[in-house]
Amino acid sequence: MADKNVFFLIRKTAKEEVASIAIDHALGCLTVLEFEVEPMVAFAGDGVLNVLKEQEGMDTYGVDSVEERVKMLLMSDVKVLALKDDMDRLGITEEMITDAKEYDAEEAVTPVSWKEILKGMEEADMVMFF
């Protein structure tokens, strides 16, 4: 069990740098040396669009897509959640969301209810909204 837990909620989409920066902060938790930090990352609102698979960052702009960063979270065993209500609203099915199976990640993006997100916020030591 980690010493500290941080809950990230990401609502921004691909137009802005925010979602990537948010994930970088979450990844930054994993290299804190003074104590053990466990981040949890949730996507809600239009932010659920960040977990779509087949984002072609490299082929288009020569950069890592947000999806690549989500995969890095999964590879690092970070729990990644997406709000099911917003997925449904935008027509995103579970088949359309990314995973990191090619990197042998056990974790996958988990569609959840708002109740689960609220629970994550309640249980965390710190909450960060992006």
Partner: peptide
């Protein structure tokens, strides 16, 4: 949880705020 929420926009994120239910 006692939660302090900063709101800096007139047209704020109503949907998220409406869902945040806490003590």
């Amino acid at each position: 949880m006692k939660l302090g929420i900063f709101v800096s926009d007139f047209r704020y994120d109503v949907k998220t705020l409406d869902k945040v239910k806490t003590d």
